[in-house]
């Protein structure tokens, strides 16, 4: 059940011009309320912004006296700019835990596929999953592949493949090409867990379906309430129904999503 929680900013680290690593003291959101990676917090970004901003949870930890939660975000507009200006000791009004998470209950081997700012929500799955896993991480350019993030996958996954759109680091090209190569060699993945921009999710879902590997995707949509009441965050399904990113998602079965809507 979600609650309203006042969090205190524990630390702010700037990763590059627009990307921030923010750690919050988050009451008992993790230990009592079960907050975990892949879910999101709906954050009030000052009085100037009416709507809260959804930000994914990257890393969670039980701690005393308060749990710790790391968010990794990019400045895109006024709300995230305000968030980036927070200082340690400042407080944040958040709603959480919100949304579902990737389903990793099936034993087996998992393939994690992240793109850009969609990589952080996979960190906990890369680090803590009880099953063997491989990671494919895509970035626009090499300088966006922050070692403090990629190393967490490299240290815990069987293999970690880096791709960049401009070829400045790792494989030149999009993640779906790397995913295709992997699936061609070995189809035994239990599931693909993907998070990133919609075009990336769509192409990964297509490859997954070609090789009949189950695929879960974490989708973004503009939100109002963040808890399932206002119905603004609609994600169309193949069967013609609407699901909602904040309540039914953000993680959906790629087979259910209407990618052409």
């Amino acid at each position: 059940m979600p609650i309203q929680q006042t969090c205190t900013v524990a630390s702010m680290t700037q990763l590059d011009g627009v990307t921030w690593w923010m750690t919050l003291e988050a009451g008992k959101l993790v230990s009592d309320h079960g907050l975990s990676g892949g879910q999101f917090l709906h954050i009030k970004c000052g009085d100037g912004q009416l709507l809260r901003r959804p930000i994914s949870v990257a890393i969670t930890g039980w701690d005393e006296p308060e749990d710790l939660v790391t968010l990794i975000f990019e400045v895109r507009g006024e709300g995230t700019k305000w968030l980036s200006q927070r200082k340690p000791g400042d407080t944040l009004d958040v709603l959480g835990p919100l949304g579902n998470r990737f389903d990793v209950s099936q034993p087996g081997r998992y393939l994690l596929v992240g793109g850009g700012i969609g990589v952080p929500p996979l960190i906990e799955y890369g680090e803590r999953l009880q099953w063997p896993r491989t990671a494919v991480l895509g970035f626009r350019t090499g300088s966006k592949a922050f070692p403090c993030i990629t190393s967490r996958f490299q240290d815990h996954c069987e293999q970690t493949f880096l791709c960049t759109d401009d070829g400045s680091l790792g494989r030149h090209g999009f993640v779906d090409a790397q995913v295709r190569d992997l699936l061609e060699k070995e189809k035994s993945f239990t599931a693909i867990l993907a998070c990133g921009p919609k075009p990336m999710l769509k192409s990964v879902a297509k490859v997954a379906s070609e090789f009949s590997v189950p695929c879960q995707v974490s989708m973004e949509e503009r939100m109002g309430c963040g808890i399932g009441a206002c119905l603004v965050c609609a994600v169309p399904m193949k069967d013609g129904t609407m699901k909602h990113a904040c309540k039914d998602g953000p993680v959906f079965d790629a087979e259910e999503v209407d990618w052409d809507a």
Binding site: L51, E221, R222, G224, C230, P236, M242
Partner: peptide, 20 residues
């Protein structure tokens, strides 16, 4: 009814627009 396609919300100065 399934309602309208997304985006269904936009923020405006001290307001929001919706098209649920």
């Amino acid at each position: 009814r399934q309602g309208n396609p997304a985006p269904r919300i936009a923020e405006t100065p001290m307001g929001i627009l919706n098209s649920v």
